[in-house]
């Protein structure tokens, strides 16, 4: 038996999973059951962080992965991102790094660049 907290929505249902994820209890909705099955086999997370840019008006741009990536790759991916420097201005939603470390997920910008000088 495994106990999990569903992270899909703010309800945070407490799930108990029995027999290789086949039986899930405590989920208020179907998405929670799906979450439990994936979580037991291949836990994945969206990674949100920042990338360093070459622009003084906006030295760090907020970014996230376009979809979930394997949880055990988070630290490795962070290292990759830390060594990266963004040299062009991208729009919100645009890819900053494509196919991040072969995960199939892109790293996308989650904010617009500030154009004007900050006082």
């Amino acid at each position: 038996m495994t106990e999990l907290i569903c992270i899909i929505c703010p309800n945070g249902c407490r799930l108990t999973v029995k027999g290789n994820g086949l039986k899930v209890e405590g989920a208020k909705c179907a998405r929670g059951k799906e979450f439990a099955r994936i979580e037991i086999e291949d836990p994945r997370r969206v990674l949100c962080t920042t990338v360093k840019t070459v622009f003084s008006t906006h030295p760090y741009l907020s970014v996230r992965t376009s979809k979930e990536i394997p949880k055990d790759k988070l630290m490795q991916v962070m290292k990759e991102i830390k060594n990266f420097r963004l040299e062009r201005k991208v729009g919100i939603g645009e890819a900053v790094i494509e196919n991040l470390l072969g995960t199939g997920a892109d790293l996308i910008a989650t904010e617009e660049f500030i154009e004007k000088e900050v006082l």
Partner: peptide, 12 residues
């Protein structure tokens, strides 16, 4: 804090 933040920020 919310239970989901306990899970994905601390337990993870």
């Amino acid at each position: 804090g919310l239970p989901r933040n306990i899970a994905q920020c601390l337990l993870d």
